[in-house]
């Protein structure tokens, strides 16, 4: 039995709108094994992004238990959670979310600034990560000098740099053309198969979902067997 890296038990979450509580996730129980590449799918409003946010530790459930890498992150305070994320989570966003005023190298280096690594060490790691994604020759380019696909690859390098426990991707190909989307997905597959990275991806693009090993469906806040 492969060990479970993300263990979700009876998790619920609702948002306040006006004076009312609007439920977004209802009693979710889910186990994600290490090394899995899982896609969360569902119509808009199904709660898939919210579930991703909870797994990534940038939001907290109202009820239930959530363990990632064996740690119950629902018990963490804000500062602990921040440190935990820095070590354990790699983020990939739909719109890349790179800092426009930093070049590719500096963007990838950002998460390392939260560790105690020396400058030389950091440099080695950044160069390695950028080589991995095939952008070693664009280290000093700024985001506005890169194509969408290239920017996303920089973001992937940033997501990898601290060797995180899980990688979360929210619509990673949502803003890319077909060719770039294919490059990014190929990269993700490689990360998963060759480097054993656990990837949780939210998408509503059926084509990108084909890269995943498993697909889970959500509808109105509930998991649907799939």
């Amino acid at each position: 039995m492969t060990d479970v890296i993300v263990d979700i038990h009876h998790v619920s979450k609702s948002y306040r709108r006006g004076g009312q509580a609007v439920p977004v996730l209802r009693d979710i129980t889910l186990a994600i094994p290490r090394g899995d590449f899982i896609a969360l799918m569902g119509p808009s409003g199904s709660g898939k992004s919210t579930l991703l946010n909870l797994i990534a530790g940038i939001d907290k459930p109202d009820a239930g238990e959530l363990r990632v890498g064996g740690e119950d992150i629902t018990r963490f305070g804000e500062a602990e959670l921040a440190d935990w994320r820095a070590r354990n989570v790699g983020f990939i966003f739909q719109f890349y979310n790179l800092m426009p005023v930093l070049d590719a190298f500096e963007n990838v280096e950002l998460p390392l600034l939260l560790t105690g690594l020396a400058k030389r060490e950091r440099r080695v790691r950044v160069e390695t990560a950028l080589s991995l994604v095939g952008l070693a020759d664009r280290m000093e380019h700024y985001p506005n000098e890169l194509s969408g696909g290239q920017q996303q690859r920089v973001a992937i390098a940033r997501a990898l740099i601290t060797d995180p426990t899980i990688i979360v991707a929210d619509e990673p190909t949502g803003d890319l053309d077909r060719k770039s989307a294919e490059e990014v997905l190929a990269l993700l597959r490689r990360l998963n198969s060759e480097m054993g990275k656990t990837i949780v991806m939210v998408s509503h693009d059926p084509h990108s979902v084909e890269s995943a090993r498993h697909v889970t469906h959500l509808e109105k806040g509930e998991l649907i067997a799939g």
């Binding site: 990534a56 500062a79 921040a82 983020f91 966003f93």
Partner: peptide, 12 residues
């Protein structure tokens, strides 16, 4: 968005 990203990455 940048602020959110930085916070997500772990900056306090």
């Amino acid at each position: 968005a940048e602020i959110g990203t930085l916070r997500a990455l772990g900056f306090r």
